[in-house]
Design a protein around this nucleic acid. Structure first.
Length: 262
DNA sequence: ATGGTTGGGGTCCAA
């Protein structure tokens, strides 16, 4: 089973690039973040035509919003709301006993100080509540996938320059502390790093604000797929659709993919 | 130190 996560930065304007990705990678489950639409305006027909007969959508107007698109049946699970009422989480149970949690963690604004930037404060609190929820409501022996745009680059080699980004939101010690708390809540495994050594640079996002994203290559790994220990034996492959960043009118994030083989 | 770009909705906010 192939599972992918993609911050799509508006689902309605990206149907073309979603089709390109789906044709090339054939994911069984595609989790989207930042769909930027209310559920009633979600482009169900177009995604149904791409083979996703099962869809769970939690949207809001203009901002945020998440969706799970699937070729295999889904059963809606919790829709968690932390810190504020925003649409940043949706989850589903899959027939083989797995539970999938799709998150869009707050970006946190520009200033990395919770005292003067309420958005950064909200991000830290959000991550703390995610960690607490898993610790209290699930077990490390459960089969759980936690994925999405976590908006944290946790490792030195998850950013283009560790030194230059130490005080930049997404790579501060505070955010890395709470990322670690989420990992520790159920002993999650960072699936992609099972395949790529920690000293190799790896990104899933490149800003729009560069003339040539590939030339400057100032990327960060903000999108993650975490799995609990019972799923580790099934993890056979990963991919990051880096060339997708070159598609016309695409998101600033690219899809991150894993394969779980039965 | 600053500005660079994108999307949504509505003449600005969030990323």
């Amino acid at each position: 089973m192939r599972v992918a996560t993609w911050n799509i930065n508006s689902v309605r304007i990206r149907l073309g690039v979603i089709k390109s990705f789906v044709d090339q990678y054939q994911p069984d489950i595609l989790c989207l973040q930042e769909i930027k639409t209310e559920a009633e305006n979600f482009p169900h027909a177009a995604l149904d035509n791409m083979g996703f007969k099962h869809r769970l959508v939690r949207g809001e107007k203009s901002y945020n919003g998440v969706a799970i698109l699937s070729k295999v049946p889904l059963e809606i699970s919790d829709q968690l709301t932390f810190v504020n009422g925003q649409a940043r989480h949706i989850s589903a149970r899959i027939s083989n006993g797995m539970e999938l949690h799709n998150f869009y963690v707050p970006a946190g604004g520009d200033i990395a100080d919770p005292e003067i930037n309420s958005k950064f404060d909200m991000k830290l609190k959000y991550m703390e509540e995610v960690a607490n929820w898993f610790q209290h409501n699930r077990k490390a022996s459960d089969r759980i996938i936690l994925l999405g745009d976590i908006n944290v680059a946790p490792g030195k080699y998850d950013v283009w320059s560790h030194r230059q980004l130490l005080d930049i939101v997404s790579h501060t010690y505070m955010e890395k502390y709470y990322f670690r708390k989420i990992l520790n809540s159920l002993n999650f495994i960072d699936a992609v790093r099972e395949f790529v050594p920690h000293h190799e640079k790896l990104y899933s996002w490149w800003s729009y604000r560069n003339k040539d994203w590939k030339l400057s290559n100032k990327g960060r790994r903000l999108d993650h797929i975490l799995i609990t220990e019972p799923l580790k034996p099934y993890l056979t492959n990963y991919d990051i659709f880096k060339s997708g960043r070159d598609l016309a009118s695409t998101s600033d994030h690219v899809p991150v993919i894993i394969d779980l083989q039965r």
